[in-house]
Amino acid sequence: MVTIAEPVRKQPVSRFRFILDRRDVLGALFVAPAILYVFLLVGVPFLLAVYYSISAYTIYDPSWRFVGLSNFEQVIQNPVFLDTLGNTFLFTFGSQLLGLILGKFGALLLLRPFPGRKIVRALIILPWAVPIALASVAWEWMFDSLYSVINWTLIALGVIDRSNAPNWLGNPHLAMLCVIVVNAWRFFPFAIVVFLAGITSVPQDIIDAATVDGAGFWRRNYQIILPMILPIVAIGLIFGIVFTFTDLSVVYLLTNGGPVNATSVLGFEGFQVGIVSGDVSHGAAISLFMLPVLFLVVIGMLRFIRRREI
């Protein structure tokens, strides 16, 4: 006969002995540093900026007097600000578009097997990894009015004449083109990585099926692969847009906003007004302008991704 029921002895156990085995306790413990970090380094400065933007705070008169939305009103009425806003959009979307196109082609090239592919894949990350301050020095020389290697090449090829060689950073339109190109150059390794991740995640069977179904290179790429990787690309693009929209490093290092504010972007303008000129409240108001714009862009793109989810 088998005995089923036996007396059960209960061992006395301390309440805290297995406390770290509890998911709720351990989870909270692991997440706490991140929350603290985000709160201290993102939350506090953000709340401070919000308060600055509705006060009359300057470094010469550090009063916390509440002035409502008048800082914003004054900022909007400034024609330089409106130019800056336009520049920011042009700079952001221009460099993202150029970066995405370069990234797509770069990814397609890097997917093909060729000798030394691994080294090239590693090197391609360089523009992203090199400190932008360092890279800007090189770009500045390339765009220099006297020593530009680009002009030198164009003159040597007979495309342009020495007497009317373009002054890349001196002409308002060319200067904007320059900062867009440099920022796209900085962004495209990231775009390549995103595209590579996307394209390699498309099952080979689907690509083969499309080939047998009669799709050539373009149809395969634009009707099958691209729609399938669109959610991944959109995530990459959100990152790109947010970082570029709020970035001032390329502009600051290459053109200093010039000539005549032609390349000034929101981040740069906020820095100039708030830090360099010491008008903290107006600087904060300029910088906070980015928030609703970015918020709408991100919401829109996330909705798009959800709709496209496969």
Binding site: P203, D205, D208, A209, V212, G214, A215, R308, I310
Partner: peptide, 17 residues
């Protein structure tokens, strides 16, 4: 595409989108 054959794959290869 010009061979006039059709193929069905192990994982079907349906276009998810």
């Amino acid at each position: 595409r010009a061979r006039g054959v059709a193929m069905m794959f192990q994982s079907y290869g349906l276009y998810p989108h």
